[in-house]
Design a protein around this nucleic acid. Structure first.
Lengths: 188, 188
DNA sequence: TCTGCATGTTCAATATTCTCAACACAAAGT
DNA sequence: ACTTTGTGTTGAGAATATTGAACATGCAGA
């Protein structure tokens, strides 16, 4: 249906450039890549939208990696501003965790708006990876336990600790608790 | 024929991870990406080898770029050693330029084995981009002109200059001239 | 329990890629 | 001129990706 897609054109042109840079003919590359020369011809002239597998085999014959091959494509812009309702919900139960930016890939920082309903409790948590986290309570009260230390924090109070310490957050008092936290690096 | 390819598996698993990280269901992402949910399902379960176009549309819905998506794949190892006959020939006429590494992509340096047949002459050359180059004569004699300076170099003699200076190499004497040169960065 | 809704999966049909073979062209050797 | 060898391109058919609709499951709420 959609013949001669412009993006395929650019991809094909790039493949041709890369192949010629490597001093390989379509057939020579086809042999290395275990595809047919026609496949390469069709891709380079933008007549087809190759499969990932075919493209990967071809690039391995050059050789060049997928990531490097696509490095010429502009990365989509990461959003800078997020409306309140655009924050990604990743919590569950009585604990709401709204993450700034739905997608952590390539980011150095995870920022969360945490809402603890009455009696919400994270239970005892411990992350194996090296990270640090901290936060500030906005409203309500929460009992925070880190290692052997325990304290009840109210509006304006804050915390900061190494994520490898076992820790636990539990809502206390008559109203739900809201706090903002940050963690680095995100768990991947 | 080849069902459940292992590389497709990994690609699918990665897509699933990325999608879930973004907090999107298959259908939600499908809608943004203008593909069907089945496509995403099949890709994630490794049952198909998606087309580049389909994968790109899907990733745009997340959003994440192709290069970043494939960053998890190890880049193919750049070859370290090259047999004499593996050097890529990029010259023509009486001038032979054998390039170390057929493919300059991602490299900081271009290294050439240059062979000038009798009376071979590069003519006057000037590169617009910022670069420096130098070399050492192995055998034979060559007359090198850089800017207003001119000198005949023999075995063991060397040169080094800014590529933006107009320059010219011309074989002189009774035997062909061989030299090794290096240039940084390669012209891209 | 039932309904409604959201999730991911699977099937048959359609659209597309990929292959194999042939073609057209150019350069080099005889 | 005529091969020979190399290049990229182009059909028709086999192989495969993508679609659209149905299916299965789980979960929340009445």
């Amino acid at each position: 249906m959609q013949n001669t897609n412009i993006e395929d054109m650019e991809l094909g042109q790039r493949l041709r450039a890369v192949r010629e840079q490597a001093g390989l003919s379509q057939r020579a590359l086809a042999k290395r890549a275990d595809v047919t020369n026609s496949t390469i011809s069709l891709i380079e002239s933008g007549k087809v939208n190759p499969s990932v597998g075919a493209l990967r085999r071809i690039l391995q014959g050059i050789p060049i990696g997928m990531s490097e091959f696509f490095a010429f494509e502009p990365e989509p812009e990461k959003t800078v501003f997020y409306a309140a309702e655009e924050l990604t919900e990743i919590g569950k139960g009585g604990l709401s965790l709204k993450q700034v930016g739905g997608n952590l890939i390539g980011r150095q920082l995870m920022i969360l708006l945490e809402t603890y309903e009455l009696n919400a409790d994270t239970g005892r948590v411990m992350y194996g990876h090296e990270a640090e986290e901290g936060g500030i309570v906005i409203s309500g009260r929460v009992e925070v336990t880190v290692g052997h230390e325990r304290k009840i924090l109210g509006p304006g109070d804050a915390y900061y600790f190494d994520s490898r310490s076992p820790h636990r957050f539990r809502q206390v008092g008559p109203e739900k608790c809201v706090l903002v936290s940050a963690c680095t690096p995100p768990s991947f």
